[in-house]
Nucleic acid binder design. Sequence first.
DNA 1: CAATAGCGCAACTCGGAGGTTGCACATGAG
DNA 2: CTCATGTGCAACCTCCGAGTTGCGCTATTG
Lengths: 95, 95
Amino acid sequence: MSDPLGQVFGALADPSRRQVIGYLSARGTATATELTGELPMTRQAVAKHLATLADAGLVESERHGRETRFRLTEAGTEWDDRLDALRSHLTRHRR
Amino acid sequence: MSDPLGQVFGALADPSRRQVIGYLSARGTATATELTGELPMTRQAVAKHLATLADAGLVESERHGRETRFRLTEAGTEWDDRLDALRSHLTRHRR
DNA sequence: CAATAGCGCAACTCGGAGGTTGCACATGAG
DNA sequence: CTCATGTGCAACCTCCGAGTTGCGCTATTG
């Protein structure tokens, strides 16, 4: 189906996926296997998360030999910034 | 669980819920029964959507006699604006 | 070439989300 | 008081999302 906004929000709704975005933002690039070391789940689960992020247009992949490296797209970088802004916005209005 | 960001994104991921936000933004206030006329689903389904929006802090309710009127919270209004911005941002970068 | 590291695909489980139906309860109108 | 209107609650169904395991294929490396 074609619901770009829904796909993006759906992708961002998952904490693990937001963490992946954070890691990619910090490291610039990573493989599914590398990210597995940072998350309490299997490589296949991480790969699925990366696939949904890719479907949402937040991440793109490029295969280099036998490894597939992922990095944030421009949209993904924008959302990483917005997430930071939203988080501080939340903690600021915290009661 | 306490994942405010996740709740908000999860709430915004559903098209029907974004429509509800749009209606509330346009009309200022509405009841679940009124909104049912605008959406292809039953009143109870609409009520559930309103409940999730309320859990996410985007909507608040006030019971007036036998009817319960809903309106956007401040956060809900902010998100309604952001949604407009994001939509035009999307159509602008459309290729 | 043999062995290993890295991925991708497929099948399975499990819980929660979206939606429906049915009913019970309160409240305003006549 | 009676009745229709507006809600809320609960049970149920179906489907998708998150995660796992298992296997097979590709590409490095020694």
